[in-house]
Design a protein around this nucleic acid. Sequence first.
DNA 1: CATGAATGAGGGTTCATTCAT
DNA 2: TATGAATGAACCCTCATTCAT
Lengths: 217, 217, 217, 217
Amino acid sequence: MARPQDPRAKIELLKAAEAVFVEHGLERARVEEITTRAGRSKGSFYLHFSSKEEAFRQIVETLVARLGSFVDEPPPPGPVDLEVLLRRQLERSIETFEFLWMNRGVVGLLMSGGGSAEFGYLIVELEQQYRQMIERWLRWGMAQGIYRNDMDADLISLALAGAYDSLARRVVKETKRPDLRGMLLEMERFVAHAVGTPEYIAQFDSMVNNLERKRNS
Amino acid sequence: MARPQDPRAKIELLKAAEAVFVEHGLERARVEEITTRAGRSKGSFYLHFSSKEEAFRQIVETLVARLGSFVDEPPPPGPVDLEVLLRRQLERSIETFEFLWMNRGVVGLLMSGGGSAEFGYLIVELEQQYRQMIERWLRWGMAQGIYRNDMDADLISLALAGAYDSLARRVVKETKRPDLRGMLLEMERFVAHAVGTPEYIAQFDSMVNNLERKRNS
Amino acid sequence: MARPQDPRAKIELLKAAEAVFVEHGLERARVEEITTRAGRSKGSFYLHFSSKEEAFRQIVETLVARLGSFVDEPPPPGPVDLEVLLRRQLERSIETFEFLWMNRGVVGLLMSGGGSAEFGYLIVELEQQYRQMIERWLRWGMAQGIYRNDMDADLISLALAGAYDSLARRVVKETKRPDLRGMLLEMERFVAHAVGTPEYIAQFDSMVNNLERKRNS
Amino acid sequence: MARPQDPRAKIELLKAAEAVFVEHGLERARVEEITTRAGRSKGSFYLHFSSKEEAFRQIVETLVARLGSFVDEPPPPGPVDLEVLLRRQLERSIETFEFLWMNRGVVGLLMSGGGSAEFGYLIVELEQQYRQMIERWLRWGMAQGIYRNDMDADLISLALAGAYDSLARRVVKETKRPDLRGMLLEMERFVAHAVGTPEYIAQFDSMVNNLERKRNS
DNA sequence: CATGAATGAGGGTTCATTCAT
DNA sequence: TATGAATGAACCCTCATTCAT
């Protein structure tokens, strides 16, 4: 298949498809509605996608791939500037939620399984990735001595992943952009208390004070 | 005088339907596959359900209703025996997860949205219920002085609900019954640290020790 | 098949079937509606009829057979008392229409073809019978010299049959019993003018006067 | 640029549908048989009709509409050239029966109610129209003094409509085109005798002689 | 490449008929 | 015999995909 003449065609189709998938789910989405919304012919759909599922896969895989890129690894063991780290983490999570918000249509679809059992593995894998990232951070924090040592890292990472997940679900259902920073800072505090040692919790509070001070200046 | 209705008929159909819905989702489930699995004729399905959706609704609503019954309210404000409360909560959550485990097929289907957008509202409502229950517990604990006072109860309840949700998702995907008690006790500890005052956290640990001692004796 | 125990069963089923056929036509009539209305079980239907069509056939054939019995042959050629004849014919046609009125449900069904192409032959045959009877009367009247001699008996009998047919269609659609005698006397007059010689027409009028005088006395 | 719509498609489908409806009636007609006969795919049917009933309606309503256009009104009261009128009426009725003959399939279906109760109202209305037209002619003739004055116009128009109806039923069942002119002229004569004054009847005969003389010259 | 007409497999539902009790 | 639960063939319509133009 040569590159289609009109490069906007595929993009428009993808946009329309996204909307229709979000509205009806993969199964109930009709190809004709997609092409009509894209202002194109029914046949044009098959110049760009080999099937309805293929289009869905492209949309979803693209999103999942980009979501995967937000995964952030803990630094190597050793001394670190915790405040810098905290700021970075906060910024990174804001970015992530910003992205979720911008793509709330498809993300919402994915999170409510709106595709089909067939594509569930994608979201499962993504959740795995995030959970594992969190687990690595947990283990890093435990090794650093800032997190409690008596935790089941596997289970707690699952719980934390779920907590963020549930935040994400709420965000993508909002109609007005929520205060992501406030929300995520509150989450950081929640996490700090949930897993931090008393010393770290104290330190965390002062770090947050610093952050806010700098921010307002 | 007539052939008596086979009392197993509906039950077998429901079981088969459940399995097929879990496997393919509402949309892709074929009535004929359901009846074949139930060892019955295609027409028999319509002796018991007016439509495929109706059968699905029956399965799902039944489950959701029973899940709703696991919601547990906090006691009225005032002095309480925290250890008794903890034990009760633990038992109640074990029961709940036991139930999820036993119904892991449909629960998994629901959690992965496998039905259809049409029935999504059920799971949304259920999540609401659980989150609100958690929020009421949070506010109770804050009023009792055992939980930190600087929390956004709405957000934190969402996070905690998500944490449990994610546990539930894992449990229903297991093939062997997990150690629910261990898992949920660990979750209690997680919650205690996440939201408890330092005093309560200390108390919590001793209460857990007590619980375990009594349990092993 | 032995004679059923309950002799009312079949009659009740036939009555119910008639009503349902009239209401929905053969095709759309549901066996279950028939049995329900008859206050019997679905299976009982098949104790009395081998199929839905069979029941329909029985109802319709019975009616058609009885309608066929109203056919009245002209007397042998030779001198006759025309007034007696006229009275007899009038009475006979009133009887016929009385019967149509009493069976207006099924008759209406038949006349509007409500059965199915499959049973159209019955009504066709019946119409044939009536037309032929009329033709025989026509030929008799022509031979007697009371009807015009320049008529195409085949065509005119068809026309007259149609005229009566159309009367019948109207009657069976009425909700209140119409004045059948008046209607049919008017039809006799119509026929007399249509096919009678001027002499017969004059005679007809005086005969009618006589009839009415005797009737009112 | 796309494959142009086959302009014969709808016409062929309509023709096939007509044949199948005539053969089996609306209810028993199978869409697949229609499309097969039209040499097309099952789905093509739905490119042109939204449902089986819709196709039936299109066929029937078209026919009924065209049949309705054959209704011919009497002239305003006053002196008229009866011979011209007679010729015109004869021609008009020949046209009508010609049309019936050409459309004998569907007309036969309609007349035998072969559609379904659902569409019976169409034929009822049509019969009404014709009967009312005849009634208007009757009243006109009575006012002109050429028809007898002692008639029940409502009843006699019904009878005459039935007479023509029955002719029509015969015509559409023929396999070879009947001598419509002869048949209808004979009907005119029948009508003249049935409703005309003795003077008009005499005049009618001479008019017919004139007509035939001119025709043969 | 672009179009949209044409295709036909697929599946939910109905309901006449059968048959175990 | 009477019942009504059970059966399964039948059929309409949808819609993803193909393909002639």
